[in-house]
Write a protein that binds this DNA or RNA. Sequence first.
DNA 1: CGGAATCCTCTTCGATACTG
DNA 2: CAGTATCGAAGAGGATTCCG
Lengths: 218, 218
Amino acid sequence: MKRRSYRQYCALAKALDVVGERWTLLMVRELMIGPRRYRELLENLPGMGTNLLAARLKELEAQGLIERAAIEGSARTQGYALTDRGQELEPVIRGLIQWGVDLLGAPKEDDLSRPEWDLVAFRMLFRPELALKVDGYFVLRADELELFVQVEARRVALLDRLPRDVVETVIEGPGALLRAVILGETSSDEALGSGQIQIKGSKRQAKRFLACFRHPSE
Amino acid sequence: MKRRSYRQYCALAKALDVVGERWTLLMVRELMIGPRRYRELLENLPGMGTNLLAARLKELEAQGLIERAAIEGSARTQGYALTDRGQELEPVIRGLIQWGVDLLGAPKEDDLSRPEWDLVAFRMLFRPELALKVDGYFVLRADELELFVQVEARRVALLDRLPRDVVETVIEGPGALLRAVILGETSSDEALGSGQIQIKGSKRQAKRFLACFRHPSE
DNA sequence: CGGAATCCTCTTCGATACTG
DNA sequence: CAGTATCGAAGAGGATTCCG
């Protein structure tokens, strides 16, 4: 079971030797959501064979990208989690997601989709460099979805719920519109000007928040 | 000739459908150096079959990442060049190279290496966010290699030679040491303090320049 | 029952030979 | 020089079986 290698003394080639094979970066995406069990990985990576998953897990563990971890809730069963080294792939995932947004188009007939993937994309499309003076708590409501978001020191985090006694800004509107803003297809100005978005709290904050994603001009 | 696809409605999966296959990102690296002819690509991607190269070139051209381009110097023969869309993969390459640096270690016995790869890595390891007040021209001399570098508005560029009538800062030292600074294995302070590096011109500028790469603490 | 190894088929890869 | 054709080897995908 010797790994295939490009055999080039080049940081790019060495990186691809480790994470460039089929499924690997999608596994990293799954584990960026949180620790996962073998079965969960298999279910969320349809098309991937069980033998391949087992082999990749072993390789990635040997490479120090993932480790076995307890899964909260279910006792007894061990799962897999990203190590710090694995987490450091975030800029790579971020780059690929930002580049891949333009390929999304309309969902194909047989395209799978999972809400967790959207959450990863949401985090990766948030641009820290645009998040000056946006610190605070936000609630995004779109259709039946509700997101609790904290921005602090140019970093975005998704929360299970808001802490007590904080001031939040609520942004509510059609999913397609909010989605378009986040994907950079519609400008935040345009969206807010359309009258389809309701704000509770500071309108200025809401505007700043929605401007933290790609601008359509780019 | 139907492309294999993950069939997931996710920007990451869509990006990997296009650039996630074997050799593809290495081809992008080659073309980031400059336009290349078929033969040159084949020579610089040892191990890649000629049939695969031809197939990938067609796919990437169909996807709008590359285009046929005239090669300067040799008339008659057409080559391949990155389109703007292809250039936009730079953050992905950058992320992978920064992540892959730690995997380099000592060159393996049968690892190939090409100076052009180092030049790409050099550009990708330069951190614009650290390049405040570094604008100017630099000459890097290490062993028999000489590099002409311009920094302007937080961007780095490699030049064939310095323009006339500019003030340059010359940094000269052992290749291994300069390399270690650029890879983030040695701090710029330590390198400059070792007495092994000679500076011609502004010592402050040289220091600022060498601090534009990864710091060892990270 | 969840976690993982085994088998078998099909696709892709890699190397060489060949053609316009 | 720029690709196409061919074929053995390796990898991927799916079902089933084994293990605890």
